[in-house]
Amino acid sequence: MSDFWVFGYGSLMWNPGFDYLRAERALLRGAHRSLCVYSWVHRGTEERPGLVFGLDNGGACRGMAYQVDAGIWPDVLAYLRAREQTTMVYKEHHHHIELDSGEKVEALVYMVDHGHRQYAGALPLEEQLEIVRGAVGKSGENPEYVINTAAHLDEMGIKDSGLAWLSARLRDLPED
């Protein structure tokens, strides 16, 4: 294989942080985007966790696929591991994805580890709202992350009614 692919479903869609040859919308089958990970670093702390997206089993997920040149792949992989594997809540997997152009490629995907202490599972929207609204981590405020992701999904034409509900309420809440 001369180049590599990375599938982004959360902040990697709007902030990949690495060079790539091509970016294209893509579909991953067998997993869905979910605010199912307690964030202890990027969008919260262990004492006051936030919530970030993980890929959880079942369903399908639309996101962005990034083609990375083989010559820079080791650096990109090191960057992704430093970014995504801080607390090892995700497992690296390789899955087949379908690009919007119809091409099928194998991509690196970060799936949530159900056995990890940070796995939150499927929380009710009201509970997600309470967790997200006051959390802040080294990458910024948790509401900003959720609102940005919702906005980018909307721009891509990806409907997620739960995320839209959450984003609307986060935008309407007064500062604490």
Results as ranks from 00 to 15, higher is better:
H95N: 08
A65E: 15
R25L: 07
R81E: 13
A78Y: 07
H32A: 15
H96V: 11
L77Q: 13
G59E: 14
T86E: 06
T87E: 10
C61F: 09
G71D: 14
Y66S: 04
P49K: 03
R25E: 14
H32P: 03
G50M: 04
D75K: 03
M13R: 06
N57I: 11
G54P: 12
G30E: 13
I97Q: 02
T45F: 01
V37C: 11
Y90N: 10
R62Y: 14
Y38P: 01
D75T: 10
P16V: 00
E98P: 03
G54I: 03
D19V: 04
G71Y: 11
L77A: 11
R22Q: 15
G58W: 09
E98G: 02
D75Q: 11
H42F: 05
L27S: 08
A70C: 13
W40H: 04
R62L: 10
R83W: 14
A23Q: 15
W40C: 01
I72S: 11
F18M: 01
L35F: 09
W14A: 03
G63I: 07
R43K: 08
T45S: 04
F18V: 05
C61Q: 01
G63Y: 07
E92M: 13
S39H: 02
R48K: 10
G59M: 09
G71S: 15
V76F: 03
L28A: 08
G30V: 08
R29S: 15
G44V: 02
G59I: 14
Y20N: 00
H32G: 09
E84F: 12
Y79P: 04
G50R: 00
D75R: 10
G54E: 07
V76I: 06
D75F: 09
R25V: 10
R62K: 10
R25C: 07
A26G: 14
L55P: 04
W73S: 01
H93M: 09
Q85T: 04
T45K: 00
D69G: 12
A82E: 14
G59A: 04
E46H: 04
G58M: 08
E46F: 00
P16F: 00
R48D: 08
K91F: 13
Y20M: 03
L21H: 06
A23S: 15
G50Y: 03
L28P: 08
G30I: 08
K91T: 11
W40Y: 12
H95D: 12
W73A: 01
R43W: 09
R62F: 14
Y66V: 04
R25F: 13
L35G: 02
M88P: 01
Y20I: 00
V68I: 15
V68P: 03
G63W: 07
E98H: 02
T87C: 01
D56P: 12
W73R: 01
H32C: 14
